[in-house]
Simulated scan of single mutants.
Amino acid sequence: MSGTLRPDDAEQPGPPVEGTAAEGTAAEEPPAQEPPAEESPAEEPAAGAAPAPARRRQRRVAAALIAVLTLLLGFAIAVQVRNTDTGEALAATREEDLVGILDSLDAREAQLRQQIADQRAALRELNDTDSRSAAALEDAGERADALAVLNGTVAAEGPGLVMTIRDPQGQVRVADLLDAVQELRGAGAETMQIDGVRVGVSTAVTGEPGGLRVDGRPVTAPYEVVVIGSPQDLQTAMSIPGGVVDRVGRQGGSVDIEQRDRVVVDALRPLDEPQYAQPQTGD
């Protein structure tokens, strides 16, 4: 009786089989619902597409920083190794060799100091040369201006006097005007003009009383002479006994002299070019 199967016992394995089939059926059902579940992964790239470029830029910057730091580290290591090698090499060098190295460094330092001194001396020489050139140029300019005033090629101003020679009877002669010019020059006149004609080294007074000419230009009484120089010295030279004032008075004329702090001699004369004389160029 123990080995006989009961109907109840034969039917007991049934539920597990049914459960397995049910599980298989339940397992097979999800594929029918897979399309809706796959839609959400398809939407994820759209949401994550925006930060992708930013991540790539961050990677590039990080890579660049790593490269720079690597180079700096390599350079620092190389310098340290070089210093270590140099120190070790010097430590292993004999005393005689160290003395020789020190002497070489001292000689090199002395050579560099000498080069610096030479350069400074050359700079000072250039500055001195420029100063001398500037001084020479200034002196030449001053000489040119002085010669231009004396030659009558530029206008001039300064203290002086205005002398008016009156000749109502037309008796003032060429010699009277020439004496006036010479005595004014002797008294220190630097430049002058007569009736608007500049008086120069080669000025000539010609003509007859009442019809005088200065450098070929006619002048008429009263003759106005504008002179630059010491006013007091010029007036004294004109007023000495037997001088210009006395001679003009004997011709029936008169001389009025007015000292001024500033007079202008603005009549110009062309520059006389020498026909024969040339500057001396050598011995």
Rank of each mutant, 00 (worst) to 15 (best):
S104C: 10
A26N: 07
P53E: 01
A78E: 01
Q80Y: 08
E39D: 10
S104N: 10
Q114W: 00
L69K: 09
P41G: 02
E39A: 07
E43G: 03
A32R: 13
G19I: 04
A78K: 03
A135V: 14
R56D: 15
R56F: 09
A52W: 07
R132I: 06
R57S: 15
A21V: 13
A54C: 12
A37G: 01
V79T: 09
G87A: 13
T86E: 09
N127P: 01
E23T: 10
A117M: 00
L69A: 15
A62D: 12
L71I: 10
D128S: 08
N127K: 10
P41W: 05
A67V: 11
L102E: 06
E96R: 05
A89G: 03
Q119I: 04
T70I: 03
T70G: 10
I101C: 07
R113V: 05
R108I: 09
L69Q: 14
E96D: 11
D128T: 10
A76N: 05
A76K: 01
E125N: 06
R59M: 09
V68R: 02
A122C: 06
E38W: 12
L72T: 10
R82E: 07
A50H: 11
A122R: 13
A54H: 15
G74F: 08
A49G: 11
A107L: 02
A42Q: 14
Q114D: 10
D103I: 01
I116V: 11
A49T: 08
R124N: 05
Q114I: 01
R113K: 06
T20W: 10
L112P: 02
P41H: 02
R120K: 13
T25Y: 02
T25F: 03
R94C: 05
A52K: 13
R113P: 00
